[in-house]
Computed example of a mutant assay.
Amino acid sequence: MTRTLIITNDFPPRPGGIQAFVHALARHRPPGSVVVYCSTPARSDRGTWRDPEAFDIAQPFPVIRERTSVLLPGPAVRARARRIARLEECDSVLFGSAVPLGAMAAGLRRDGVRRIVALTHGHEAGWASLPGARGLLRSVGANTDTVTYLGDYTRARLARVLDPAAARRMRRLAPGVDTERFRPGAGGAELRERLDLGERPVVACVSRLVPRKGQDTLIRAWPRVRADIPDAVLLLVGGGPYRSRLEALARERGVADSVRFTGSVAWDDLPAHYDAADVFAMPCRSRNGGLDVEGLGIVFLEAAAAGLPVVAGASGGAPDAVRDGDTGHVVDPLLPGPTARRLIALLGDPAAAAAMGGRGRERVAREWTWAGAAQRLDAILG
């Protein structure tokens, strides 16, 4: 049986989509086949998750943490990774992100690791346009057996950087969704009661509050939405450094009374926050000349699994998660008008919105399962 060492900076209890992706891949490996070597989340990351020690003990595999918030491929980390691989008899390595940790691939290969795979996400696709990062990505591609990609957008960006042989070895590996957790009836009614939402129409956005995610576009669109749907509520789920600016924008636009900020939400409570909504919207956008893009957006898939129609911004690979016009809509994220029009149409026709959400859930159950992702990883690891 292949025994895999996962080396990653992106792992719970630090929250985030990549963290959830890597963790789920680890949990879906055969028993006894995984060891995780990762960083330790800073204390500021621990608010809505268990402490690392309690989290690690609960996992069905060993978790070895370096006492640093970021693993970098320096001499000490390289030496420890090679030592863990030897002591744990790991014959394969999976890097949670290709850059920068994939720079350790050549040394691990010399120590006898048979198979090396590097995951990529949105940030690698952005970095592919930077000269220094391009060289590192090309080196990672040359020294690993497979570089994975999320969808057509990320593959196209990365394939231009890798040498032709590495580009031919690329394989798609995208996250799945647990449709038993994210589903209609997952506690939304109780949450609505707790938040005193009653039967009001709700648009939810689940994400960190940062400029790229587009919560400001939602707030700019909200006066037009309220003009047509006066009792609508915008539920912004998540914490982040942009919150004070978003709160100020809501006051400036005169909609503060209908915009609710939940702050950070525990992982176990996320399904209820989707289930409390009628529509999901995150008009994410690309920033910094394309360096900061949405790789895929697992929140769009979680929302679809919850039976919600989705409004997504046209950033990076986000359109891969939405079948435009069928399971949701893809909008220009820089303009509030397109977002407002789509939200008004969906909130104004609940039957059509529910049908669109139902098609989204069917698609996720068919195409975006963790069982499918686990099978693809099995094949990639050989």
Rank of each mutant, 00 (worst) to 15 (best):
G348D: 01
D196A: 15
R243M: 04
N9S: 13
P13I: 04
R341E: 13
V63R: 04
E362H: 13
R114Q: 11
L296T: 01
P62D: 00
R138G: 01
S97G: 04
L173F: 03
G198M: 01
G185N: 08
G102V: 04
A85C: 10
P62T: 00
G239Q: 10
T146D: 00
D51Q: 11
D278G: 12
L301M: 13
A306P: 05
Q375V: 06
T179M: 13
R155V: 00
S39N: 14
A379N: 03
R86K: 13
G151S: 10
W370Y: 10
D10G: 12
Y274M: 11
E367V: 10
G295S: 06
T2C: 08
V364Q: 03
P41R: 02
P201W: 02
L108M: 13
S39F: 14
L381Y: 05
E362Q: 15
V255P: 15
A318V: 06
P131H: 03
D45W: 15
R168D: 07
R363D: 04
E124Y: 08
L381C: 05
E362R: 15
D324I: 13
R114E: 06
E124G: 06
R200A: 12
D196Y: 13
G328F: 09
L209E: 02
A352Y: 03
V322M: 08
G214A: 05
F95Q: 03
G74F: 15
L137E: 00
S315C: 10
L343N: 07
R251I: 02
L162F: 01
G317A: 03
Q59L: 05
G290A: 14
A374R: 03
R43Q: 12
H273R: 09
T68E: 11
R50L: 13
G17S: 12
I219N: 05
N9P: 14
L291Q: 09
R160D: 04
A167K: 01
T217R: 04
R220T: 04
R169I: 02
D292I: 11
T327W: 08
E294F: 12
V202A: 07
D56T: 06
G239M: 10
H273Q: 02
E180Y: 12
E367Q: 14
R366F: 09
A352Q: 09
G96T: 03
L150Y: 02
V331Y: 02
R285F: 05
G289D: 05
I344F: 08
R109L: 04
H23V: 00
A352G: 10
D257F: 15
A106F: 14
A79V: 08
I84N: 01
T146F: 00
P62C: 00
R115D: 08
F61N: 01
R65V: 04
I219A: 09
S139D: 03
R194Y: 08
A54E: 14
A165P: 09
P319F: 07
R155T: 00
P41G: 02
A248C: 08
V113G: 05
W368Q: 03
A374E: 06
R14Y: 09
E88Y: 15
